[in-house]
Simulated assay, not measured.
Amino acid sequence: MSVSLPAPRILLLEDDPAIAGTVAFVFEREGWRVEQVLLVREADRLARADPPALAVLDVGLPDGNGLALCRAWRAGSEPRLRTLPVVMLTAQGEEMDRVLGLEAGADDYVAKPFSPRELVARVRALLRRAAWTPPPAAPAAMLELDGQRAWLGGRPLDLTRLELGLLQALWRAEGRIRSRSALLDEVWGPDCEASDRTVDTHVKTLRAKLRDARPDLDPIVTHRGLGYALELVSRTPPR
């Protein structure tokens, strides 16, 4: 006998009535439940009391910023908020807006004015990804880090200090995109005068070493114009 799953509940933080009405309409037409709020503090209160399946956050609100709210969730101690799928609504389509949203921990962004069909497609993809539980991976697919060393599939990786730092920075992001500037600050230091090309070069050599250990994996994914993300079959926590 099949069991019907409850409709996913989506938290919508948007203070523009026209936009909020349109988003709520297309979401409810998909069978999703929508809980719309106008203020950052109200969205935070509701999410902490009962985390939704997904949150859509506007950037500029009367009492704060959706980016700051997303960043607080990601840095907090509530596991369901640390992994809550988040879509940012930005007023502009500039690259910096996208980078800020992704660095705050958002999973995706949509720039205003946006197509409701595109927003629905992006939300549907995130809900599907969040609901999917991957099968247990074979031990050979695991990446292990202990601060000074790294292994992939049980094989030790011969990494330089910067390659190891880069791998750790990507690994800690849990599959989210890290921009080149963020990786430069974290791995090379904020005072380093290196360029984005430095990151690209080290990613290239790190990629080659990971492929030597597991030729069937290509774990570092390039997101053109945004940065890099680490996507592995399986992960183990730091020792």
Rank of each mutant, 00 (worst) to 15 (best):
V3Y: 09
S4P: 04
L11K: 06
L12N: 01
G21I: 08
A24D: 12
W32G: 05
R33G: 13
L39Q: 14
L39N: 09
V40I: 07
R41I: 09
D50S: 13
P52G: 07
A53P: 04
L54Q: 02
V56F: 00
D58E: 08
P62Q: 07
G64N: 00
G64F: 02
G66F: 00
A72T: 10
A72V: 04
W73L: 01
R80G: 00
R80K: 12
P85C: 01
V99E: 04
G101F: 02
E103Q: 12
G105V: 13
G105F: 11
P116D: 10
R117E: 15
V120G: 03
V120M: 03
R124G: 14
A130N: 09
W132Q: 15
P135D: 08
P136H: 06
A141R: 07
L145S: 07
D146F: 04
D146T: 10
W151V: 05
G154V: 06
L157K: 09
L159A: 07
L159I: 09
L162C: 13
A169K: 05
G175F: 07
A182W: 10
E186I: 05
G189P: 03
D191S: 13
S195C: 11
R197V: 15
T201A: 15
D218V: 02
V221E: 14
L226M: 08
E231L: 15
R235E: 13
T236Q: 15
